[in-house]
Computed example of a mutant assay.
Amino acid sequence: MSTIIYPSPIFGPVHSRRLGISLGINLMPADGKICTFDCIYCECGFNEDHRTKTPHPTRERIAEALEAKLKEMQQDNIHPDVLTFAGNGEPTSHPHFAEIIDDTIRLRNKYCPQAKISVLSNSTFIHRPKIHEALSKIDNNILKLDTINTEYINKVDRPTQPSYDVHRIIADIKAFNGQAIIQTMFLKGTTEDGYDVNNTTEKFVAPWLEVVKEIGPREVMIYTIDRETPDQHLQKATHEELDAIRDRVIALGIPCTASY
């Protein structure tokens, strides 16, 4: 199967469907994947297939590499729209995530003050005070909430922490007081063992919408699979399905974008 393991600590810039010209910051090792989810749709593959043998990049190395790349882009007259923490796993799991955010803000202000800082997170560590504080400093705090159905989460997102509780996650997102962005994957098809993963149906959309309304995020981003997935039986949600869900979010008074 074809999967993407990103360079570390800097990759791109790439063109993001949702964010524009994005310079990626990968806080995981370059030789594999470390994540608190093991999503069946992850473009980086299954966790067990990409075990790392090297340590996380250090705070100092990340800052040096980011500064060097921003200098290079400045010289080439390339202006990033966003500096995006993503890559081979959950960025907030890096032991020095909060300090790295401070470094990134400083370098952004120096080299590309117009650029936004975004973090793509699966929300598993946002209950930690230092992580919450760090995410409160950035422009786009993008937090995953694919569904509120526990069975679906265990079959599709597959949290690696036995303590994962979607209701706690919802409460932790609410603690950002409307400044979080919710990101939700909609897809169809079945898992390799035949579980129906279609979360575009009313069974999943209606309760998800209720929680979105309860959280009151700044924005919602919905999307579907765009690259090859480690589970080969998955299918994209259609434009029409995504547009219908998007319109229902907008009807709640919450901005929403759909990426196909």
Score class of each variant (00 low, 15 high):
Ser22Lys: 01
Gly178Pro: 11
Leu27Phe: 02
Val82Phe: 00
Lys213Cys: 12
Thr201Asp: 15
Asn149Ile: 13
Val197Cys: 08
Glu64Asp: 15
Tyr41Leu: 10
Asp81Met: 05
Gly216Glu: 09
Phe97Val: 05
Val211Arg: 12
Ser123Glu: 11
Ile131Thr: 06
Tyr164Gln: 09
Lys155Thr: 08
Pro255Arg: 06
Ser259Phe: 09
Ile126Asp: 02
Val82Thr: 12
Leu107Cys: 05
Glu60Thr: 15
Arg51Ser: 12
Gly45Ser: 06
Leu209Gly: 13
Ile148Met: 09
Tyr6Thr: 07
Ser93Trp: 09
Thr104Cys: 05
Ala258Gln: 06
Thr54Tyr: 07
Ile245Pro: 11
Tyr260Phe: 10
Arg128Glu: 15
Cys256Met: 08
Thr190Ala: 07
Val166Met: 06
Ser123Ile: 06
Asp139Ala: 06
Asp81Trp: 01
Asp157Tyr: 06
Asn47Ile: 11
Gln179Lys: 15
Pro113Val: 07
Leu66Lys: 01
Gly24Asn: 00
Lys53Arg: 15
Thr124Tyr: 03
Phe204Trp: 08
Ile182Pro: 03
Ile170Thr: 14
Asn199Ser: 11
Pro159Leu: 06
Leu27His: 00
Gln179Trp: 01
Ala86Asp: 00
Asn122Phe: 04
Ile169Pro: 02
Phe186Thr: 10
Leu242Asp: 03
Gly194Met: 12
Arg61Val: 07
Ser163Phe: 06
Arg128Gly: 04
Asn77Gln: 14
Asp49His: 14
Val119Tyr: 01
Ala134Glu: 02
Ile153Val: 12
Glu219Cys: 11
Ser2Ile: 13
Ser22Asp: 04
Tyr260His: 13
Ile153Asn: 09
Asn47Phe: 07
Leu242Thr: 11
Thr54Val: 08
Ala30Phe: 06
Pro55Thr: 05
Ala206His: 09
Pro9Ser: 04
Lys130Ile: 07
Val211Asp: 10
Cys39Val: 13
Leu19Lys: 02
Asp165Leu: 10
Asp247Lys: 11
Asp172Ser: 12
Phe85Lys: 01
Val197His: 04
Ile40Glu: 03
Ile4Gln: 13
Pro217Lys: 05
Gly253Leu: 09
Ile100Glu: 00
Gln183Gly: 03
Met73Leu: 14
Glu210Tyr: 07
Glu192Ser: 14
Glu210Pro: 09
Leu135Ser: 00
Leu19Tyr: 05
Ile100Ser: 00
Ala237Pro: 14
Glu64Trp: 02
Ser2Gln: 14
Leu252Asp: 10
Val14Phe: 04
Ile25Tyr: 01
Thr36Pro: 06
Thr54Met: 07
His233Cys: 10
Ile78Tyr: 09
Leu143Val: 15
His233Val: 09
Lys155Tyr: 08
Ile215Glu: 04
Val249Phe: 04
Asn47Gln: 10
Asp102Thr: 11
Asp243Thr: 10
Arg51Gly: 10
Pro162Tyr: 06
Thr201Ser: 15
Ile225Val: 14
Leu19Glu: 03
Glu90Ala: 05
Phe204Arg: 08
Arg17Pro: 11
Ile40Asn: 03
Ile40Ala: 04
Asp146Trp: 01
Val212Glu: 06
Ser118Leu: 07
Phe11Ile: 07
Ile181Arg: 03
Leu242Glu: 05
Arg248Met: 13
Asp243His: 08
Pro95Leu: 03
